[in-house]
């Protein structure tokens, strides 16, 4: 029996067959990789947390002892029953979409570190917020809401104290603003952030 390649039925079956095959392949690929990818992302998160929170500051599992405030997940480092470090994700509206960064503070509200996790800024311009490309982001270490004063939390162009990049002002401006909001968030929820349940304090 010969197959008529020109018939509508053959074309429909062909398209349907390939679409089914494609679906099966994608589902299989997803099944194979889904858990590994989740694991890798968790590892990534832990790696970035470790970049902003020094290992000697905590002795708990950062990922499991987290806190939910205002849709934010706060990762807390504890040692000897006290909160020693706080970290959460902050979001800035950059030049080309969202910039996601991790902000870590010590209990006094001083910045332990900031790291950009994800952004779509212009290569060679806005991407200097990445620690791999420039040490600009390290200048925030040790600063807090009183140091400098709140009205100085701006880029130099806007009358503040932070440098912008040549050819890119929007990106650093957005990052500075997001960090400032992070510090304000800490000020607002300080009590909740520092409070440990008895069970948490024991662990």
């Amino acid at each position: 029996m010969s197959i008529d390649r020109q018939s509508i039925a053959y074309q429909a079956l062909l398209l349907g067959g390939f679409a089914t095959l494609a679906t099966v392949l994608l589902v299989l690929g997803n099944l194979l990789t889904h858990d590994t990818i989740l694991e890798r992302h968790k590892q990534d998160l832990l790696d970035s947390l470790n970049q902003v929170i020094a290992a000697e500051l905590y002795d708990n599992d950062l990922l499991t002892q987290s806190l939910q405030i205002d849709d934010k997940t706060i990762y807390r480092g504890t040692k000897n029953g006290r909160v020693t470090a706080l970290a959460w994700q902050i979001t800035a509206q950059g030049y080309a979409g969202e910039i996601q960064a991790l902000l870590a503070l010590n209990p006094q509200g001083e910045i332990l570190g900031v790291r950009v996790l994800f952004h779509s800024e212009t290569p060679n311009l806005g991407d200097k917020v990445e620690v791999a490309k420039s040490d600009w982001i390290l200048a925030f270490n040790g600063l807090s809401l009183g140091n400098p004063n709140i009205d100085q939390w701006k880029v130099k162009k806007d009358g503040g104290q932070f440098d912008a990049f040549t050819g890119a002002t929007i990106t650093p401006r957005a990052v500075v603003k997001a960090i400032k909001q992070g510090l304000l968030f800490f000020q607002k929820y300080r009590g909740q952030l520092m409070h440990l349940d008895k069970t948490e304090a024991q662990s």
């Binding site: 494609a22 994608l26 690929g29 194979l32 990789t33 590994t36 990818i37 890798r40």
Partner: peptide
């Protein structure tokens, strides 16, 4: 379809491994 599936699979595999 074939190209799109391939790119998606390559993306997943590189992401995982």
């Amino acid at each position: 379809l074939i190209i799109a599936v391939l790119v998606s699979l390559v993306d997943m595999f590189i992401n995982a491994w």
